[in-house]
Design a protein around this nucleic acid. Sequence first.
DNA 1: CAGTGGTCTAGACCACACT
DNA 2: GTGTGGTCTAGACCACTGC
Lengths: 268, 268
Amino acid sequence: MASSTQSSPLAGPTDAPPDAPLGMAEAAPAFSPLYQQIKTLLLQSLQAGEWKPGDTIPSELELAARYRVSQGTVRKAIDELAADNLLVRRQGKGTFVATHAEQHIQYRFLRLQPDAGDRDTEGPAERRILECRRVRAPADVARPLGLRTGEPVLLVRRVLSFRGVPTILEDVWLPGTPFKGLTLEALAEDKGPMYALFEAQFGVRMVRAEEKLRAVAADEEAAGWLQTAAGTPLLSVERLAYTYKDTPMELRRGLYRTDRHHYRNELN
Amino acid sequence: MASSTQSSPLAGPTDAPPDAPLGMAEAAPAFSPLYQQIKTLLLQSLQAGEWKPGDTIPSELELAARYRVSQGTVRKAIDELAADNLLVRRQGKGTFVATHAEQHIQYRFLRLQPDAGDRDTEGPAERRILECRRVRAPADVARPLGLRTGEPVLLVRRVLSFRGVPTILEDVWLPGTPFKGLTLEALAEDKGPMYALFEAQFGVRMVRAEEKLRAVAADEEAAGWLQTAAGTPLLSVERLAYTYKDTPMELRRGLYRTDRHHYRNELN
DNA sequence: CAGTGGTCTAGACCACACT
DNA sequence: GTGTGGTCTAGACCACTGC
């Protein structure tokens, strides 16, 4: 099996045309290893919802049989998906679709931490939804989300508090179509991460995100919500979150108080 | 070879004692796979300077022969080290020790980016060393570096400018012993990343780092160096950088202007 | 061409979880 | 015990680099 260069047991679309011109019209023939093709197929199954967050996917041997490759090959594909946090392996139990719910430690994307000392006594954040409105997307929201200016979007504004201290004020912008039906009530009643609700209610799983940080001065409104003085330095965090296939699905603009907390980052 | 549970072809220190009590005194027997042991050995060779940054390490087959394991096993060990950015694989050429010099895109740890638009015209940073002094470590510097208060450390203060605009003011604290002989002149003459100089001159390779970010107001001194007004919100970035074996080797406290730049982060 | 890393296989066995 | 992921091997062949 491993020999015939690009026989591809699955007639995948990644194959080069069987009679590509020898002159090579443009790009390289784009050799793609078998395990990459498997990875793509698994990704498609995930995206299509064949297996939902929290589900266990078929065993390595099953998948190997389905795709007509060796166990080692599907293993390598799964390894990469697990490295990207799309799948979670659990020895003896199986391989699971990653989820923002019950993800042993919640708030996977929230990098704000209490300063030393308060580590243990912190407890979970108290959430307060200020509003949830359907609006037309301003240009600076539409562009990053890949929408056109004026298309309908949802705007959720909320405040997170720790130990009673309002610490985060954020606006969450969501494209209107995939999140049709999201209400303030649903958000207010929900416990657990917002991204878990997105999975359960709308089948949208956030996979990765990019953040841009700045230091800004609190304006009157922000100062009010965060119970601090206007002009106080705040950490501005703009997050663009993506689903499968690198599709942007959420724009979040937050202001963080950093007098008792800090934003923690690891560099490798 | 793969069978005898823990025969360990290399008599590594990770082996469980051959006659551990069946009652299991305390922790688990700590089963450690072969490839992990190989990884540890490679790490030791790196740390000992057997192969220096930029060097090519022995081929997979050579290492497999040396350690008496299969190629696949050393491959997995190297894979993990490459994932941690300690090694770099180059097909057809070999496996190399990662380096901060010539690392195709420099400043691996600097996350500050020009805002959209200025991307191309930015060019390299202009550096100005303000001072380089030998001092006694204050408590808040000694602790994170794993030193005792009052031990000798080096303090380097510098300003980085982009397109003529002073943007970063930072204090770099280094333990005195490993960096004995570092002078302002050496720093001033050097081009290229500071971490490349550390590798070349002192054999210290920075492997990973942790950063804590905050928004703060510029005091008079910072405002002066950064040519801005006192009270301007600045991004405070405290970085602890580690060498091999998770040894902290540098503490850096920086203030970033974020009016034309932002701190970019990827969440996975 | 030889040498390096990269892919793929087939099969054996180990560690872990559930029943 | 059965089934799952995890480790290890041995060998074949492919892709890339440089002599």
